[in-house]
Design a protein around this nucleic acid. Sequence first.
DNA 1: TACAGTCGGGG
DNA 2: GTGTACGACTGTA
Length: 762
Amino acid sequence: MKFTGWLLDVYALPEGYNPDELEASSSPPPYKGKPGDPQDGAALWLLDERDGSRRRLWQALPVTFHAAGPAPRLRLLWRYLQRFPVSLSRSERHELFSDQPLTVLTIQVARPAAQPALFRQVSQAFPDLTYFDADLPLSLRHAACYGTFPLARCRVEVDEKGQVHALEVLNSPWELDPAAVPLRVLSLEPDVDPFHAAPSHVLVRTKDACYRLSLQPVRPLLVNLRAILLRHDPDLLLTAWGDTWLLPHLLELSERHNLPLPLNRDTDCSPVYHQERTYFAYGQVIYRGQQVHLFGRWHVDGHNAVLYHDYGMEGIFELARVTSLPVQAVARLSPGSGISAMQMLTALREGVLVPWHKQQAERPKTAQELLRADQGGLVYQPVIGLHRDVAEIDFVSMYPSIMARFNISPETVKNSPHPKFGDFVPSAQQEMEQGLVPRTLQPLLEKRIALKLHLAELPAWHPRRSAYKARASAHKWLLVTCFGYLGYKNARFGRIEAHEAVTAYGRETLLRAKEAAEDLGYNVLHLYVDGMWVQKQKAKRVADFQPLLDEIVTRTRLPVALDGIYRWVAFLPSRMDARVPVPNRYFGVFQDGSLKMRGIESRRQDTPPWIVQVQLAMLDCLAQATSIDELPDCLPALGRLLRKACADLRLGRVPLAGLLVSQKLSRELNEYSVPSPAARAAAQLEAAGKHLRPGQCVHFLCTIGEPGVRAWDLPDPPNPATIDRDYYRRLLLRAASSVVEPLGVKSIELEDGSSYLCRNGK
DNA sequence: TACAGTCGGGG
DNA sequence: GTGTACGACTGTA
């Protein structure tokens, strides 16, 4: 039988599904394999295009990995492996960093689910050997063999037992407009945040129905939910707190009451829990709650999905398509692992060995490493104050573009301790075969640019805009993290010299852009890593800056874009010292009236929402002015806004939720030498039995007296009388002064609760 | 004034 | 199933 459908998922049935056949360690069962047993391959879920049925198929997918090392040790490993159900061979393979082929012992396992355990065992018995292709997600192996990716349109040939004998992919992840897949979505969420209060109901929504099920009594809840799941049979279960509360809770109820709840579509396995964890990345501690993964159906928890708020399901599907990682995995992964997966896929397809990703323990940097500390991006000190006729010009995806344009990849950079722009002869670099990283990046860069072009052509009201935006945004994150991965010592394809080469090119590029601007008579106000602020008298239109854009492209050979022309832009001074500019504290209004701001209070995650609201209202007021000359006329209105806000605060008219500070815990509570306000709030929660891990957020109010804070998620409601109004007033004035500072307002004075703005100290 | 702790930033 | 380094800023002693 042949049919066409969309590929939803590829996985190995989990270990333990048929345990008597999986343990190869003690007594080696002679492995024969039973034709027709899905365990001996990968399970594939397809959405049949003809009748919309969801089918679980299976396909043989032998898994191959390699070991390299001294010949005697490899012979020993050969002998060791003979008691396992594997086939062994010797082969020559290509390693990324070496021109010489490498002799490896190739180990093939017929049963994908058994490979991780086998590899664990082998690597423990032979820790001195080097391993390749040993720890790859199954979906990547499938993608490398067949060109598949989640939601790919596939034509399959299947026998009556559901075994796939041929598979052909009919589309590409690089298509701009993939046909919509008729997925069924069911959303499931508790009526309140379960960490703040005890939920009483679950809200269930499908495309055309909505139910409100009471959590008590349990029996009808489970029976109804079961009926809804069976009737609707969703492909995607979209939940709120489903990972951290709802699904574990429901599964526990189902277990306790012995009432089955078919959250999985694949009846051969049970949902799998992934432990919560805390790790260090992006210069901070990150907490990832526990996860519940389903089989035959995706579960995505909007509160536990990375960047879900940025790009939603559309972005998650896009990430899955281009990375070939399963939908459930990409939803919770950082984009760093997405780009890493793409590099592995490139390597797999081209027969380049993928090094095993050992969990290396953190070691302190040596003095030498500290000395060579990467110089990073070029940052200037802006000209403090308010400016007119300014355009912001940004390089488009600067670092990835540099990698692609100048062919910077771990295996192409020279082994130079301090690479600078001059060290590289661009033509020589480009004459080398295109490196693995640029090869991986090229189609991503092209697709992102195509998406943005498409977006620019669509009118604002167009219904497809949001999907394009989400997808462009997902691509942006892949590109951004790609650069970081080059310099990350634990990355499989990372190399610090490549990282430094990229930043060196970046600095040189920006300097060339600055020279171009100055040569053409523009005044350069500021430079920041990949952006430039230039000024020219009376320049108000795109055409006034087009010659400069063209010149920059000619001189740097990298794409630039006009981010916008400002009606006015203000670069703020340091709060510590008003004479010192800071590189990333500014705001301005573009000619279309839209605001751009960086570094001020509203951009900070820990600023209370009410303060953000007032500051944005003040900025909005400034955005109403059509020119820089009208800005002083806004002062009275700003004063009114501020006085109103002060009065609201004094009279208790500000909802408490608006005063919440949210901060992240950076360590365990007993590790604080000086407990921060966040730590003191967390201690209150701890006392109430709610333990927070490092990386989790604490929400708290600032209160009078000791300990000065009051955690939000405590059982009883906070007392409004204890709010530290004076503290919030200081926060408010601080945020307000950021806005009015460029207008020459040097101080904000308050008399018996009313405030007025003093210009130039008067 | 020193130091410990927190956040940004890419669109 | 993982980015890093660093500077600005605030709160506290």
